[in-house]
Structure formats: C-alpha cells, structure tokens
Design a protein around this nucleic acid. Structure first.
Lengths: 335, 335
DNA sequence: TTGTAAGCGTTATCAT
DNA sequence: ATGATAACGCTTACAA
C-alpha cells in the first residue's frame, strides 16, 4: 500500500469544510442537516478525490466489521459450497464481506473466536458447527443456523423430514418393499431426521428396515460406496436404497457399477440434496432436492435482518422436492 | 454484542500495569524489554479475563485487516472451490481471514474496491479477474494470480501448456489421428495455452485439427454437451476429443451417452483439471490433473510472504499429471 | 523497565 | 448549519 489512502480529512480540506461534516454528508445519515450547497461541495470533492471511507476505522467506532462469517464443515462438499455461494451473493449485494471458514483444519470454536476478534457482525453456522461451539462463545453474537433442526438458535431450514418421506413414498409407490438406508454415522440431527422421515413414512406403508440394510457410513463418496458394497454382498438384498446425501448415493452408484449390478434394474437408488453431480452420472440420480443455495441466501438475509435491527420472521421451512430421474424403477416382484 | 468486550485496558488494570505494557507483552514484540515478572502478571490477567485483542483496532493503527481476499469467477465450478479451499487452509493456519468474492454478481473491480476499503492485506485473483480490474485499482496492493500465464503480476502457476501436451501425447500414443478440441470461448489465456499445448504436440506428431472439430463453448456441463452433440452430428467425426476443462468433458460424456455413442469405444474423451466429479462417472474420466488445491495453498503462501516481507520465489510451475482412467482407448483403425 | 502521550480514520456529541 | 472535541482499542515513539 504505497499510495497513502485518501481520508475524509483530505476531502474536507478540498471542500473547505471540517472533517466531521464530510462524515455527516457521506454517511447518508438522514438526520444530517447540512446545507444543500455544502453537501454538493463535499460530494464533488469526494468524487474528484476518489474517496472511499476506511471501513476499519468506521468499524472501530461502530464496533463492527461489516462482515459475515460463514462457517462450514467441509468446503469439498458441493452442498456447502452452494450454501456459501448463496450467502455470498446476498452479503455482497448488501456491502458485507464474507469471511469463509472451513472447520476441517481449524475447529468451529477457534474460527468463532477469531471472527469475534474481528468484530464480525454475524455468523452463519451449520448445525454441526453450532453444536461444536460452546454456547458462551456464541453469546451476544448474531447467529443463524442453516438447515437448523431445533430452536436453540435462529435458523433457516428446509423440510428435513420431508426429504425422507418423499423418498419413501416414491419407492413405496414403485412397489418396493425391501428397502435399505445408507446414512451418515455422524450424530447430525439433519441426517437423523432424514432417516426418521424415511422410516416413519415406510412404517405408514407397512414396511420396516431390517437392521442389516441400515448402514451408517460417512456422508462421502467413499462412505456410500463402502456401504453399498456391503449391501450387495448380502445374500438377501434390498431392492431399493435411500441415501442420506447425494455424495453417498453417488458412491453407492459407483459400487453398483463396479459390482456389475445395474441401476435401476438391479437396484433402485435415491439420493438427497440434488447437487450438480447428480446430473452428470448415467443414469442420472433420482434425488430429493434441497435448496442449498436458497438456504444460504435466506440465512444471509435473516442474519442481515438481525444485524440491522429488522428481524425477519423465520418463515416456513424451504420446500424440498422429489426429482425423479434415472436411478429408480419399479420393484422387480410386484411384492 | 451485549457483553462489553474486554480490552487491553482491563487487562492492564488487573495486572497493575499500564495499557501499553499489555500491548507490548501480548503482541510478542521481540524487542519488548519487559521484566519477566510483569510479563507473567500480564499473561495471567489476560488469561483470567479471557482477553482477545481487537483486530479492528489493531488494524486501524497498522493499516491492515489481517485478511486475504480471494476473488473467483464462479463458486459453482469445483476447480475454484478447490482453489479457495487450499487458500483458506493456509490463511486460517496463519491467523488470516479469507474474504470470499464471487464475480458473477459483483464485478471483480467492485470487489477489489470493497476489499481495499477494508484494508485487505492481499488478494488472490484468477487471471480473468486480474484482467478485469483496472491496473490502478491494483496499484500498491499485494496480489497473487492463481494459474497465472504471464508475468504482469506475481503469480503461481501450473504447467498450463503441459496439460494440452499430455493429452495430445496420450491420444497420439493410443493411435488417434482424428482429434477434436472442445474449449472455452472465453478469451482466457489459460484455456488458450491448454489448447496451444495440445495443438503443438499434435503437430509434432504430424496431426492437425480440422476446424469443424474445434468447438468453442462455455467451460460448463452444458457447453461441453452442446459441443459434443455437434461433433457427433458430423458425418465425419474425430475418434478422440480433448476438453479444456473437466466440466465440459463431463458434459461431452453426457452427450455421448444420450446419443448412444459408447465411450471409449465409440470415441475417446480427455478432460482437464481432475475435479472430484471426474471419478463419479462411469467410465471414470481420463483427465489431466491440475492441482487446484495446491495452487490455492501456494498462492496464499506466496501472498503471506509478500505481506510479511518474506517474499517467496515464484518456484517452478506445479506439475500436471495425466490420469488415465476409463474414457480413452486405442483408436479403432490403426490409422 | 515502564508509564505518558500521540495518533490511526471514523462517528457522535456537543457547542457555536 | 457547521466546527471543535472526544471517543473507539490498539501500537509506537518518547519520557521518566
């Protein structure tokens, strides 16, 4: 930064007014009663000098950073990437910076500490992150949880239970009665609720999942593949499987291909999320679409509301939607 | 922020010293000659109070933000997501925040202006972003260009020409002589150089690309699909195609499946980048691996070096690597 | 070795 | 309507 920044003082000198007057005029403060003429002189001088207020100085006095923290568990998961993308869009449009934090290397708690030291205006967390941070660290901080499943903190959510239900109804409707579930081993409420929705809707259809068909694995390609491999090695297999997220579903698909089991003829697979990758495989993945970008955008909007004192109502959970593509077909035996 | 923050002043009072002494002790300034006893008292008080220095205040005096800007053209492209992920890792480890900016909605220039107003310590840009920002906006700013192709600004790079060359050599080695190229229409030097590497290596093998087989489309799934559709509709088709990035290659693959053309029997396809999706399709995509995460990490390290006055040498371009998987096979006719 | 004083660029509260 | 003046919390001389 060789070039010395232009300050409000410089503008003031050029406009022939005092520095605070410049601040008054430029901050657009409504209750700023300045003569129209002075006002114009200030604007002119500011424009000519290319003045940009120093946000750090402004932050020091107003005790904020004009920034939003976005803390995600894993930037390599396209779902969170979309959340971030949605949040960034909204934040940038309102002049807020997005400080991005991945908790794989640095814990959510440490990230929060660091963000607080920066006087962050608010933070978007996923439920896992929220759970990993001691409540006192969050005290007095504007927080919005994305895809929240309980009411401890303000949050935006999608119809989490609905994901499982839609998957169940779809599969049941196709005549499947022998169903499996591949879900994360993480103690995440989101995944638990997806599972719950699935199981409950199944039960309503008179179907239950035998425990060998219920596989708990990490919500990754590798996890899904491993789970499906095990399922396929069973003498007695399900005819359809619901996966807690698309990454696992894609991994499961892969395992099927490797094992020479055709999808959907040999087995039906339903994912959850509808990440972009769901459409690159062949056949394309049938999945339940969760509006990740929408969640991110909505979380950011809610956070901005909290920050600027115009709180939004939580609003109904964002709807999820079954997207039937190529990995599901009628059950082989009409049960 | 209901809770009043603990300041260095509070610590000073509790330790029975003056506030600047606290600063001296805690900032770890080596040339701070403080009595061991005082030092301990300060540490103790700070610990007991849970003191965290206010980075905004610190930033105001030192004219910086302890933050890195990362400006990418498209967060939905997994390649850039990986770059960001690599940069975030390094930045966080050094106590820097990452301010993430996507240029789809807000131009790179505007992002840079905003970042400057925040006294950003440095910025990571992609070549396209760098080109889109007026040089005077970058003046005096620490900038590192990721996957840079010229020397205007400090940058880290991969062996861009090598990507095309490796693809060409691989295909030539498989006996292909009828080759096509699907590349972005963007005026990006990176893509131009990938193409150049491909074309030059082909020429060395006595092969050239007839213009109908050279398709310029956006570097996206849809772009790649459209290009491949056109290629397949030609009476006279290439036996193999190199795509400027994996997204386009994946789209091309999709178009082949839809058209009933088997890969690699009917046509061979090579991508570039090696994004995670490359391994979820079946057959898996043969591609040239570009270390996106490594580029991001290296860019961040270089930027930190610039910032902290310990500049790194640019270093050799990061090597790229041909990853032979399932979408390439020997040419049908041994030419 | 440590405390005092000044200043970073704003905003906000006064007088004038 | 506008100009001094005082914070905001910190770092960095400079005194003591």
């Amino acid at each position: 930064m060789r070039t010395p920044r232009i300050t409000a003082h410089d503008v003031a000198r050029r406009a022939g007014v005092s520095q605070p007057t410049v601040s008054l005029v430029l901050s657009g403060n409504p209750r700023a009663r300045v003569a129209e003429q002075t006002r114009e002189r200030v604007f002119k001088a500011a424009r000519e000098l290319g003045y940009r207020p120093n946000l750090v100085a402004r932050g020091l006095v107003s005790q904020r950073s004009f920034g939003l923290g976005v803390v995600v568990p894993n930037l390599d998961n396209p779902f969170f990437t979309e959340v971030v993308s949605g949040a960034e869009r909204v934040a940038a449009a309102s002049g807020y910076a997005v400080m991005l934090c991945d908790t794989r290397q640095t814990s959510a708690a440490r990230h929060i500490e660091s963000l607080r030291a920066r006087l962050i205006d608010g933070v978007i967390l996923d439920p896992g992150g929220a759970a990993a941070v001691p409540p006192e660290l969050l005290a007095g901080l504007n927080v919005v949880v994305v895809d929240a499943t309980d009411g401890d903190l303000p949050g935006v959510s999608s119809d989490v239970i609905g994901t499982g239900r839609l998957a169940a109804e779809h599969l049941l409707g196709l005549g499947h009665r022998r169903l499996g579930y591949i879900g994360p081993a993480t103690d995440s409420r989101v995944f638990r609720l997806r599972e719950r929705g699935f199981v409950v809707a199944l039960r309503a259809g008179g179907v239950s999942i035998p425990s060998p068909w219920l596989r708990r694995v990490p919500p990754t390609l590798a996890g899904g593949a491993a789970a499906m491999r095990e399922l396929l090695s069973l003498a007695d297999r399900p005819t359809a499987v619901f996966c807690g997220n698309d990454l696992a579903a894609l991994g499961a698909l892969k395992a099927c291909h490797k094992a020479g089991v055709r999808v959907p003829d040999g087995i039906s697979v339903v994912g959850c999320d509808d990440i972009e990758m769901a459409r690159v495989v062949t056949p394309e993945l049938t999945t339940v679409r969760v509006p990740a970008r929408g969640l991110g955008a909505r979380a950011a909007r809610m956070l901005l509301g909290l920050i600027e004192g115009t709180p939004q109502r939580p609003g109904a959970p964002l709807p999820v939607e079954l997207v039937v593509r190529g990995t599901t077909a009628r059950a082989p035996e009409a049960a």
